[in-house]
Design a binder for these strands. Structure first.
Length: 304
DNA sequence: GCATGTCAAGTTGTG
DNA sequence: CACAACTTGACATGC
């Protein structure tokens, strides 16, 4: 049966992740900056442990870790790292959170921000993207996160050229980051059909986002795309993404996400598979629990 | 308290 | 051409 996953944050459960801005940090005396960033990191890793515990307690089998877990970690003059004095303690907390995830069977993943474009035309963008992916690889290694999801990025001057640049960027990554990399179809540019050849060439699994596929279709049916993407996981439980459109499928832009998942948007073929379904919905854990109840009911009815 | 403006970073498409 | 959208508002500030 499919398992459900929660993305990044909670709506009602009292688990909060803190953030800061580079501008604010520069208003602090340089001596105070590492301590401030360390405090945020400690808070956030404790919150991550709470999030994993919450998932385990509610039968939620996956959690997507917010990329801002260690705020400003890749900023050029942050002055704080996991290798430093305070960082050692954070690394220990990360390992402990990872141990909890492992024993309670909560799969962990990362999905970097929109700024991460390893196939960009601009080399400084590629460099910054790779730094960000290395940061996630380092944290993923400590907590045992299985994957880091990236999109294809832009398409200038064409898709083939851009995907070739993406392949170059990916191949510059350390093994620690690269072995966790996963591709995902997006809602504007790259479809499952576009990404399958690159997935095969680089031996990267493909996450199938059915909402993006419906916004940005190719020649594949939902079931065929599910099947082809699942094969790229080579025996591991495939990950997929699910959301419903905030304003419905007709009329205005279908891309913004609704508060909850409309059961009509769940592909029926998913219910017969071992899948990890990341729920991208504004009502966060409430949407995950509602979908989980619906899947249980429907799967039982289906089997009977 | 509460409303508001701001925040490191990319790319695309809409109005 | 400004701005929203994307996996996600949180925070400091000023009243």
């Amino acid at each position: 049966m499919a398992r459900v996953g929660l993305c990044c944050t909670f709506l009602e459960a009292p688990i909060k992740f803190r953030t800061t801005t580079a501008r604010y940090v520069t208003t602090l005396a340089p001596k105070l900056r590492p301590g401030f960033l360390n405090e945020l990191a400690v808070h956030n890793v404790r919150a991550l442990d709470d999030a994993i515990a919450w998932c385990a307690a509610h039968g939620v089998g996956a959690f997507r870790v917010n990329s801002g877990l260690l705020p400003l970690y890749t900023h050029p003059d942050r002055g704080w790292t996991l290798a430093g004095p305070g960082g050692r303690g954070v690394a220990a907390l990360l390992r402990a959170a990872g141990a909890r995830a492992r024993t309670s069977d909560v799969r962990l993943s990362f999905h970097p921000d929109q700024f991460v474009v390893p196939g960009s035309l601009r080399s400084e963008v590629v460099d910054a993207s790779l730094r960000e992916l290395e940061y996630m690889g380092e944290v993923a290694d400590l907590i045992g996160a299985e994957q880091i999801t990236i999109h294809g990025g832009g398409a200038q001057p064409g898709k083939l050229e851009s995907l070739a640049r993406l392949a170059e960027g990916v191949n510059r990554l350390s093994a620690r980051a690269r072995c966790r990399l996963v591709l995902e179809n997006d809602d504007r540019v790259y479809t499952v059909e576009d990404l399958l050849p690159l997935s095969e060439q680089l031996e990267l699994p493909l996450i199938y986002d059915v909402h993006h596929h419906r916004c940005n279709p190719d020649r594949l049916s939902v079931d065929r795309a599910t099947e082809l993407a699942a094969e790229t996981w080579r025996g591991r439980e495939p990950w997929v993404h699910l959301s419903s459109p905030a304003q419905g499928w007709k009329g205005s832009d279908p891309r913004p996400h609704a508060d909850y998942i409309d059961p009509k948007d769940v592909p029926r073929s998913w219910l017969d598979r071992n899948l990890t379904i990341d729920v991208e919905a504004k009502a966060k854990e409430l949407a995950v629990l509602r979908l989980q109840r619906w899947i249980k009911r429907t799967t039982v009815a289906h089997a009977a």
